[in-house]
Amino acid sequence: MGNVFLIAEQKEGSVKRVSLEILSELGRQGISATAILPGFGDLSKATESLVNHGATKVIVLEHEALNNYNTEAYTNAIYQYLSTQSPSVVVTGATSHGKDFLPRLAAKFKTGIAVDCISFQFSGDKISIRRPIYAGKCSKTVEFTGIPVVFSVRPNVLAMQTGSKSGSVEKVNADPGLVKAKVINTVASQVKKVELTEADIIISGGRSLKSADNFKIIADCAATIGAAVGASRAAVDAGYAPHNMQVGQTGKTVSPKLYIACGISGAIQHLAGMRTSKVIVAINKDPEAPIFQKADYGIVGDLFEVVPLLTEELKKLKSQS
């Protein structure tokens, strides 16, 4: 299957888990892959993780301009290197950065793209890629008519495993090219939030919460187990939660291990965004709410009573372990 490249992603020297998930899956399919790691400074921890998870080679694309993510600098540097390597497959994680630079990279290669895929299968020199569309209301297979095949993989869907651990590491001086758009400042959120699309556990609230203040009940519960907080469109439209917390077809599509929906009835467009969660729990006053049709476990009850009890119970569990 020609030359397969993973564009790995690191943050402050640590590799994003999705990069390792993709390497693990390539390993299971017997595909050797080179990991490309753009960055600057000490990246030894990151390169070691990539090697441990099966990268046969790690190329560190090094330049000061790649220390923090920049759309044009990353695209230019990756393309400048890859264009000399005759890539047949270029894959990356469907993170905010991956989704940002990959279309530009695909355009440079004058090829197609498949974004946010949930599985891929190599067979001979073909690769067949599966991706959800309509926020998961259905899915389709994508095949490329030429190379390179360029695609990104959704975080949290592929299992992680260690690999042969025999890969080599090489540093290459990167060329970030001309940069016209620059991040001049980053304002961190006052409360550091777990990123929804990468969270293992999500607890979401709906319009039944009745106010923005009441979302604290959900946030308190989430904090006990390091969960991310989500919201339904109804809750966002009512002003109870910001849009970056919205789960659903006009928000984020998520697939955590555990999704707890509190006071969410289960509109089609919300279900679309969370139906691939491994385990779904619904807490709702209305026993007829459609969400119960999709939930593995349901509690018919008032969230204002149930959620605080759940918080206490999870705290107890934490103190025992």
Binding site: T111, P132, K140, R275, F292
Partner: peptide, 16 residues
């Protein structure tokens, strides 16, 4: 540059 096929609805989740 890409061709689509095999559209499928997701498996129904059984009510738990």
């Amino acid at each position: 540059k890409t061709l689509d096929s095999d559209y499928q609805l997701p498996p129904e989740r059984a009510a738990g």
